[in-house]
Design a protein around this nucleic acid. Structure first.
Lengths: 216, 216
DNA sequence: GGATTAACGCGAAGTTGCTCGCGTTAATCT
DNA sequence: AGATTAACGCGAGCAACTTCGCGTTAATCC
């Protein structure tokens, strides 16, 4: 995507720019660790990172933008498994999610991102597209299971993956308790049982794939 | 719990106080409808309700407090069913939740409350205790099913109820798409299948009931 | 009815968050 | 190396949010 010929009016991503980005994101992460999103201020980030406040506003526009970029930066820590069987994959993925959110700072982060999405429309777009993308990737895990004959062909991969992730976010955002290993195990078992029972069959079996009804 | 003898230094909840409360909460609800939590300002609420800003700050401390009180006020719209069978109850409850969050204003509201909890510790406490309470109430629905012999005795009611609610909040907060009837049906079927498969068996079968491990 | 005093209205003052213009630093290219 | 110009540092200034003191309204009690 970057311009090949290094146009004279182009950007300058190397060296100092990359250093400040690194310093700022780690500062945001540390600040989230102590005090959560409530205590996360542009000035705090500026102090800890050594970057001036005006620079933060210029590059990230607001605190919501900072938090969103941190999420997309850290999300690569949750790998997509391929164990050979769907129950194995579900269990592995659930454990990865559980390990990821076992860190309180990660819970604070996703909390902050959801909170950011409630205020900043741009953050909402980032959040939706980010999880939409990961949903498609994880969906392939389910598609492989369908090919192997573990599930019926009308199973909707994204429903399965959503069902696997949902309990963790419920635990963090609504119940507001830490995630533990038990949640991972029970969720993996539950989704596998539900999928086999046909709970995640795709409804719009014609060309329709995103069945939004009336309510906006 | 209120003092019986109307102590001279007591509060004064009748008449005007109740009117302003009503006016303010409806104003918050309407303001959430257009613009969401992002556009929700104390001044906007003051203008629409006709109540002075200083009064809002005095009674509710901040916008987070307002939103929390609105949630507890509107939550009575989700009834707890008793159809005679657990799959019937699960289906009915899922439909109630789906109907409740079919209204975009309700999605904005829960979004706002979660966002509030991320910033204000008091709001976080309100949110946790609120859902904890409803979890216990809905858990009786599952306990009745255990008594009827529909599920094994070691089933943890709260896990079942959490599993039923989780997909809706995932849809609203993470996927950021409207909830529809299909989600209700698929969730009810999924939870029923998972519960029968023993996915929600209580782990701490000794006296332990809240098994938090190491991570804080 | 009248007295008492929560609860509210009002405007000013204090605090914080955010933006802007300009000078400086240091990538990038020749 | 030297020139060009993104990206950054700095502080002033604007705007929004929040608080405070005091006078007024209207529940509640007698």
């Amino acid at each position: 995507m970057t311009t090949a010929h290094h146009a004279p009016g182009g950007s300058r991503p190397g060296g100092r720019t990359a250093r400040t980005r690194e310093a700022v994101l780690t500062a945001v992460f540390k600040e989230l660790g102590r005090g959560g999103f409530a205590a996360l201020t542009m000035e705090k980030v500026a102090q800890r990172s050594g970057i001036h406040v005006a620079t933060l506003y210029r590059r990230w526009r607001c605190i919501e933008g900072l938090v969103c970029e941190l999420l997309t930066d850290l999300s690569s820590d949750v790998p997509l498994p391929d164990t050979g069987t769907l129950p194995g994959d579900l269990r592995a993925l659930a454990r990865s999610i559980s390990a990821f959110y076992g860190d309180a700072r990660m819970r604070r982060l996703i909390e902050a991102v959801v909170s950011a999405a409630a205020r900043d429309p741009q953050a909402a777009t980032v959040l939706r597209s980010f999880f939409g993308e990961r949903m498609v990737l994880a969906g392939r895990m389910v598609q492989r299971a369908v090919v192997r004959g573990e599930l019926s062909a009308d199973t909707d991969p994204e429903q399965v993956v959503s069902a696997l992730g949902a309990p963790f976010y419920y635990r963090i955002l609504i119940a507001r308790r830490p995630v533990d290993q038990d949640l991972a195990e029970s969720t993996a078992i539950a989704v596998w049982a539900a999928a086999r029972a046909g709970a995640y069959a795709s409804k719009g079996n014609s060309s329709n794939n995103s069945g939004n009804s009336k309510t906006n």
